Measured scan of single mutants.
Amino acid sequence: IINNLKLIREKKKISQSELAALLEVSRQTINGIEKNKYNPSLQLALKIAYYLNTPLEDIFQW
C-alpha cells in the first residue's frame, strides 16, 4: 500500500492529534498508519478521506 496520509495531512495543516480527534482514534493509530505499521479498515480509510476532503485513492493506493 502506498500511503500519502502524512503528506496530505501536513499540506492541510492538520496535526496527528487533530485528525485523531476527528476520527475518534488515538494519535498513535494515525502515527501507525503514516508509518505503514498499521493498515486502516475500509471504514477508517473512508473517514480519513472524508475529513481531509481528499479522494481515497489519492491517500491510499493499493
Rank of each mutant, 00 (worst) to 15 (best):
K47W: 05
L52N: 00
K35T: 15
K47Q: 10
T54G: 01
I1A: 08
L5R: 00
I14Q: 04
L22D: 10
Y38T: 10
I8Y: 09
L42G: 05
I48M: 09
A20C: 04
K12I: 08
N4A: 05
A45M: 15
I59G: 00
A21T: 13
Q43D: 14
E24Q: 14
E24C: 14
L22A: 15
V25D: 02
V25Q: 03
D58C: 11
K12S: 10
L46E: 08
L56C: 07
R27S: 11
S17Q: 12
L23S: 06
Q43C: 13
Y38H: 13
I48R: 00
A21S: 10
F60S: 00
G32V: 09
Q61D: 12
L44C: 05
W62H: 10
K13Y: 09
L52E: 00
N31F: 06
E24Y: 07
L19I: 04
I2F: 12
A45S: 06
L56V: 13
N4I: 06
K13S: 11
D58K: 09
K12F: 05
N39V: 15
E57P: 05
L22F: 14
I30M: 05
A45F: 04
K35P: 03
K47L: 08
R27G: 08
L19N: 00
I48W: 03
K35Q: 15
E57H: 12
Q28M: 11
L19F: 08
Y38D: 05
K6E: 10
K12D: 03
L7E: 15
K47N: 06
N36T: 06
A21K: 14
A20P: 00
E18I: 06
W62Q: 10
S41P: 11
S26L: 04
I59N: 01
K11S: 15
Q61V: 10
P40Y: 04
K47Y: 04
Q16G: 04
R9Y: 04
L46F: 07
N3P: 03
R9I: 04
K11W: 07
A20T: 01
Y51A: 14
A49Q: 03
N53T: 06
N36L: 10
S26N: 10
L5N: 02
I8A: 07
I59R: 00
E57T: 12
L5M: 13
L56F: 10
Q43I: 13
E34A: 06
P55L: 05
L23I: 11
Q28E: 15
E24T: 07
L22P: 01
S41N: 09
I14G: 01
L5Y: 00
I59E: 01
I33H: 01
K11V: 08
E57D: 12
E24P: 06
Y51N: 05
E34C: 03
L56Y: 07
I30Y: 05
L52C: 03
S17P: 06
N4F: 08
R27K: 13
I2T: 14
L22K: 12
N53L: 05
Q28L: 11
E24G: 14
Q61P: 15
